[in-house]
Nucleic acid binder design. Structure first.
Lengths: 335, 335
DNA sequence: CTGAAAGCGCTTACAG
DNA sequence: CTGAAAGCGCTTACAG
């Protein structure tokens, strides 16, 4: 495609590129360009099918109108939904989204951040992986607009938008207690990330407050082998000396793996085992005992993240720490 | 962040930017740069934490190493999975992905294409929406590297990677026939797009070949109101004069909506109604009668799309029309 | 009201 | 072996 440049229009009309630039950017009023010239420029631009080259403009203006989004895995429904919300909200402000999946890995996260910096994104929305505190600190210290979502690092003063995970977990576990369960286990990741720590803390606190501290049992499954580990722990939970009668599941992926495991082992929910999961998922609706779960306000989180980021890009230095409230969707599985 | 430029390094070392550029691009051999100079440049670049500005480089080279991906909806699992595969494959070749969701709309598709052209993507991977033939033709005529996935326009000579939808549908419906079903209905979109036409044709052909032409019944649900329309048609299918005993469902979203509808209406699968759906989905596994479905080779499709696109970007003018084969995952729901 | 010119940060043909 | 210089396509302060 032979690209049409400002200069082509300028030559055709017989004016300078400056005038064309003014007109194309709607500054004909401020710059008081002659009405007749404006007309001819617009007409020619249309005839020649002129498209401004954003790359050139970006180089000149030092801004790309691009947001870098780093999630754990774009194919995970939670992140795919979040990405969709971010895409829509960003486009309202004229921003485009470049994305990448870190797979919760330090190395991949680092490469992605480098790549996106090279591409001069105006700011980042990041779901930070474990042990990436240094990377985030680097962005923060270089004053690159940044907003963390889902998790954050307490030692870095970045903006973030997260769920109040402690509250959510506490509420979910308490719901199981209210329903009469006492031997409540939890399946989580052994992650040092705050969202996981808070979910675990919420579970522990709910147990303690109901004098069930002795029954606290937390299984930790590795990110790379969720299904195998879940299966193993389910076996222990269900056949060990001290059996559990309910489980609180810390993430969407863990919940799905648990459902697969329970079907395999032919465990009856909620009679043999009551369940509360995390994050919505169509699959939860079709489990024979529709699953109760903690629902995050994905739309609000995504929108707020974009807005806060754009505020920063526009120069705001206000630090916002947003904690959002969950909803508890109660159905048959936790009876 | 005070960005470090080539010139900063050049000044510090006391050489021209040309030399620095050669060294940073690993051309010190070809350009026969003095070994000692190479050393000093590399050292300084590291000390100053130099990061090349890809925007400047893109402007100069006329290539951005960026792929524009347009899907119907990134939050739909089929497209989210595809996006993930494309991301991974693209990054192997040093490409970054910018994405957008068309919502199957002409206007949104057009805006996305414009935006991505403005951003000078090197090429497009597009799941084309209905009635966007003109947009695709425009890209094609302007020789912008392009590859269509999932669907294509028979009248435009673009590269594409799709499923052999006719084969897949034929096979799925035939499976229902083999299992003894005769009154087999289909729920589809009233789309003129080739993938939907082919799925419908496969259904019709399978019915015809088994002398079941008279039983052909196709319900067409609108993209914007899938659940309502599915519910309505299910009611007709199950309570009309001529009842169906099996359904073939043309897409992932239609399949999910059908499962919700059947649960609502308390229909027993497969006894009252046998089912075969389209595209995998975790939810299918948890339906009380695990769903049989047509599985697309998403990994292969995404990888092939990226490779063919990069070939084009690198100058290949070969036209590739790739049709891939499905797998039929047979489980309880179609008995 | 309009134009000449500098400059964003690179790459690269050219000259020596 | 190395440097001066042009140019990618814009924007914008400046001058008139």
């Amino acid at each position: 495609m032979k690209r049409v440049s400002l200069k082509d229009i300028a030559t055709t009309v017989g004016v300078s590129t400056a005038l064309v630039s003014y007109v194309m950017n709607g500054q004909e009023k401020e710059k008081r360009v002659g009405a007749e010239v404006v007309e001819r420029i617009k007409k020619t631009a249309k005839e020649l099918n002129y498209k401004p080259n954003q790359i050139a403009r970006s180089l000149r203006k030092g801004s790309t109108k691009t947001i870098g989004l780093i999630v754990a895995d774009i194919s995970n429904p939670f992140f795919a939904n979040l990405a969709r919300v971010i895409e829509d909200e960003a486009s309202k402000f004229g921003y485009t989204v470049i994305f990448g999946s870190s797979d919760e890995g330090v190395k991949k996260s680092s490469i992605l951040i480098e790549t996106l910096i090279d591409r001069q994104v105006d700011g980042f929305i990041i779901i930070p992986a474990e042990n990436t505190e240094e990377q985030i600190k680097m962005l923060y210290e270089n004053k690159i607009p940044l907003i963390l979502v889902d998790r954050f690092f307490p030692n870095i003063e970045t903006n973030y938008v997260v769920l109040d995970n402690f509250e959510a977990s506490f509420d979910a576990v308490n719901q199981l207690i209210v329903k009469g369960h006492t031997n409540i286990g939890m399946i989580a990741y052994p992650s040092t990330l705050i969202h996981m720590q808070e979910r675990i803390r919420g579970y522990e606190e709910a147990m303690k407050i109901s004098n069930l501290s002795e029954n606290i049992r937390i299984a930790q499954v590795r990110y790379g082998s969720v299904q195998d580990d879940v299966d193993k722990f389910l076996h222990q939970f269900l056949n060990g000396r001290k059996k559990v009668d309910a489980l609180f599941l810390a993430t969407n992926a863990i919940t799905i793996a648990t459902l697969y495991g329970l079907i395999k082992f032919n465990v009856k929910v909620p009679d043999d085992l009551a369940l509360i999961g995390f994050d919505g998922n169509e699959a939860f609706d079709f489990f024979y005992s529709p699953l109760s779960f903690v629902e995050q306000p994905i739309n609000e989180m995504g929108q707020e993240a974009v807005r806060l980021l754009i505020d920063q890009i526009n120069g705001s230095t206000k630090i916002s720490h947003v904690k959002m409230r969950h909803d508890l969707i109660i159905r048959n599985s936790c009876d």
